[in-house]
Design a protein around this nucleic acid. Structure first.
Lengths: 346, 346
DNA sequence: TCAAAGAATGAACACGTTTTCATTTCTCGT
DNA sequence: ACGAGAAATGAAAACGTGTTCATTCTTTGA
C-alpha cells in the first residue's frame, strides 16, 4: 500500500505491472498488442499503470519470441552525401511512424559489398535491409540475411529495360528516369545547346550507367550527337577537376548534364571560378536529384527531380507488404521524374 | 554424414553449430566471447563451422541475458543538416568498430524533447543515448532511460563556465570555443573590421547562447563594441533573410560572424546576390563548424573548426568508459577549436 | 430457461543466448 | 609419482516477452 517502492531500480517488467494491476502477466502482454481479446477497462488500467511505472515491452525479448526485431538495417557508404542523408532522414521518419527503427551501418565507398559487414549486421536480426550500395545481387544479400527483405536502392530501371529479370523474385523500386531527362534535353535544345557533355558518376555505378544510357537514347531520339563524357564519381571534387580537364584538355561543351546535383555544383564552380565562364550564358548546367542545396542562390540549379517523400513512402510500403506476405511474388513500385527549372539553363 | 542438410532454412542457431562440431552449446557461446576459457583448437573448429553455417550469435537473445544491446540510440532533429550528418557518419564508423550499432531516431525540430519518442526508444533498450537536442536535462533522459548513458551533444562550455554543475553526475563533452573565436576576431580586427555582426542560431539553443556569449566576451576583451545581432536559426534560408534585413532595415556591418557554416552560406549568398556586396572586400564572413562544403569554391569559407573525428573518438571513449564503470563519477572530455583561414576574410 | 457460441483468462511453453556452478581434466613443481 | 591449483567443460537457470491451449465467464438466440 505504501509508495516505498517508488523506484523499482532498473527497467520495469511486465511482471511488475501485472502485480500492481492485480492481473496475470499475459494480460499485460495483451494490453500492448492490439487484436487480442482483453476486457477494455482492464486494458485501460494496465496501460495506465504501465505509464506510471514507465514500462514498455522489451523489444529484444519480443523479437526473440515473435521473430520480428522491428529493425530495418540501412547500409550506406557515406551518410554525409546530400542525397543519401535526405533519404535516410525521410526513411527514419516513415519507419518510426510504423513502429520500426533505423539501424545504420557504414560500408566501404567503392561500391563493393562488404561481407564482413553483412555478417555483423545479421547479428542484429533486421527485419529488412535497405542498401545504398550497387553492384550487389539480391542473392548475395539473401544468402547472408535469411528472413530479411533485401531491397535495392540505386537500382534504377532505364527507360527501356536492358536486362532480363532472371533473378529470384525480389521486390523492386523502379525510378523511370526518361521523362525528367527528356524534359531537360528538350530545354537545353530549346536554348540552342548542341554539344552536350555528360559528367558521369562513379564508373561502376549502375545508377550512373542507367542515367548515361537514358541520356544517350534521349539525345539520339532528338537527333543530337552522342554526349562527350567527363568522368566523375558523384563527388564535388571529382566533378570540379573533370570539368577543368574537359575544357583545358578536351573539347569543351555548351551544356553539361551532371549525374547528380553535387557533381553539378562542382561543375558550376569550376566553370565560374577556374575557367571564368558564365553559367548559363556560356555553359548551361543540369543536375539530377534536386537535393535541398540546389535552390541555394550560389547554384540555383536546374535539375531532374524525383520526389523523395514519395519514394520513401513506396519503399516503406514495399517493406510492410513483404513482411505481411512473406511468400508472395515480388512486388514492384514505380516512380517518375520531372525537371525542376531554375537558373542554370537559359 | 551426407550434405543433404545444406540449407538449414532460417537462421542457424548455436545448437546447430554445437551439434555439427560435436560440442556443447555452451562451448559455442564461449567461442564467440573472448576472455572465456576454451581450448584454442576447439574454438577454432567452432568458428570454422559457424562460418560454414553462416552463424552469428543472435544479439536479441544475447541482449536479453547480458543486459547489453550493443545499440546506441542517436536522436536527431534533422539528419540532413550538414553538421549532424557528418557527425552521425563518423559516429557510426567509430561505434561499428567497437561492436556497436547506431539506432537512429528523429525528433521534432523545435529543440524540445519529445517524451513519446523517448518511451518509444526505450523499448529498443539502447546501451547509451546521444541526443542532438538541446534544452533537455540529463535528468529527463535518465528518468526515461534507466540503464542508459545519456550524453549531451550541443552542450558547449563557454570560455568561462557559466553555470554550476548541480546536476547529478553525468559524463560531459566540453568544447572550448574561446580559442577559435578569438583567432577569428583577431583576424577580422587585423583586416580593419569594426562593426562586427553576429548571425545567431536558433534562439533557444544553448550552443548558440554559448557562441554568442563567447564572442561578446572576446570582443569586449579586444576593446570592440558589442556585436549587432541578426537572428537566424542555423538554416540557410533564415540566414539569407536575416542578412537582407540587417542591411536593408538595420545598420549593416563590415563583418559577420555566423553561428554555423550553413548560416554563413546564407549570409554570403544574400550579400552577393541580393545586396550586390563583395565578400570579403565589402563584408567579411566567418563561420563555425568547418563542414565539408566550406571549402567549395563558391563559398571558400573562413571558419572556426573543431575536429570532428577527435570529437567522435572522445564521445565513444566516454561511452565505453561509462559502460565499463557504471557507477564511476562523471567523466569529462575536452576539445579545443581553431580558425581555418580561407577566402571570406581578407 | 437452456444450450451453444464467443470472449476473456492464465498456466505452461518457446525463443537463443549468457551466466553461474559444480565437475572433470590438465599442468606444474616437488 | 603425487597433490594442488588452474583450465576446460557441460547441465541448469535466467533474461522478458509472445503464443498456444485448455478452462472459465459472458452473451446470444430460440
Amino acid at each position: 500500500m505504501t509508495d516505498s517502492d517508488q523506484l523499482p531500480r532498473g527497467r520495469a517488467t511486465a511482471e511488475m505491472v501485472a502485480a500492481r494491476a492485480q492481473v496475470s502477466r499475459v494480460a499485460v502482454s495483451r494490453a500492448f498488442n492490439p487484436h487480442t481479446s482483453l476486457k477494455p477497462e482492464k486494458r485501460e488500467l494496465i496501460l495506465k499503470i504501465a505509464q506510471e511505472l514507465n514500462y514498455t515491452p522489451d523489444r529484444a525479448a519480443r523479437a526473440l519470441v515473435s521473430g520480428r526485431s522491428h529493425l530495418v538495417g540501412v547500409i550506406v557508404p557515406d551518410v554525409c552525401s546530400h542525397w543519401e542523408s535526405q533519404e535516410i532522414d525521410a526513411l527514419t521518419t516513415a519507419l518510426q511512424a510504423e513502429g520500426f527503427a533505423t539501424l545504420l551501418f557504414k560500408t566501404r565507398t567503392d561500391y563493393s559489398m562488404d561481407e564482413q559487414l553483412l555478417a555483423y549486421m545479421r547479428g542484429f536480426n533486421p527485419d529488412s535491409v535497405i542498401a545504398f550500395v550497387e553492384n550487389v545481387k539480391p542473392h548475395t544479400l539473401a544468402r547472408f540475411l535469411d528472413r530479411a527483405v533485401p531491397i535495392y536502392v540505386h537500382y534504377p530501371l532505364p527507360g527501356v529495360s536492358t536486362e532480363p529479370e532472371n533473378e529470384p523474385l525480389h521486390d523492386r523500386l523502379n525510378v523511370l528516369q526518361r521523362d525528367g531527362i527528356d524534359q531537360a534535353v528538350a530545354l537545353l535544345q530549346g536554348f540552342g545547346a548542341r554539344r552536350i557533355a555528360y559528367l558521369s558518376g562513379a564508373e561502376k555505378s549502375r545508377a550512373n550507367g542507367a542515367r548515361e544510357g537514358t541520356l544517350r537514347q534521349v539525345m539520339a531520339d532528338r537527333g543530337l550527337a552522342p554526349p562527350v563524357v567527363a568522368r566523375g564519381d558523384f563527388s564535388y571534387d571529382a566533378a570540379y577537376q573533370a570539368t577543368i580537364d574537359l575544357f583545358r584538355v578536351g573539347e569543351g561543351a555548351d551544356a553539361i548534364f551532371a549525374a547528380n546535383d553535387v557533381g553539378a555544383f562542382g561543375v558550376i564552380d569550376a566553370l565560374r571560378h577556374e575557367l571564368k565562364l558564365r553559367v548559363p550564358e556560356d555553359v548551361k548546367v543540369v543536375g539530377f536529384d534536386d537535393i535541398a542545396q540546389s535552390h541555394w542562390k550560389s547554384y540555383n540549379l536546374t535539375t531532374v527531380k524525383f520526389d523523395l517523400d514519395e519514394r520513401v513512402r513506396a519503399l516503406v510500403r514495399l517493406i510492410l507488404r513483404r513482411l505481411n506476405n512473406p511468400d508472395a511474388p515480388g512486388f514492384q513500385e514505380t516512380l517518375n521524374t520531372r525537371l525542376v527549372v531554375r537558373g542554370t539553363v537559359g
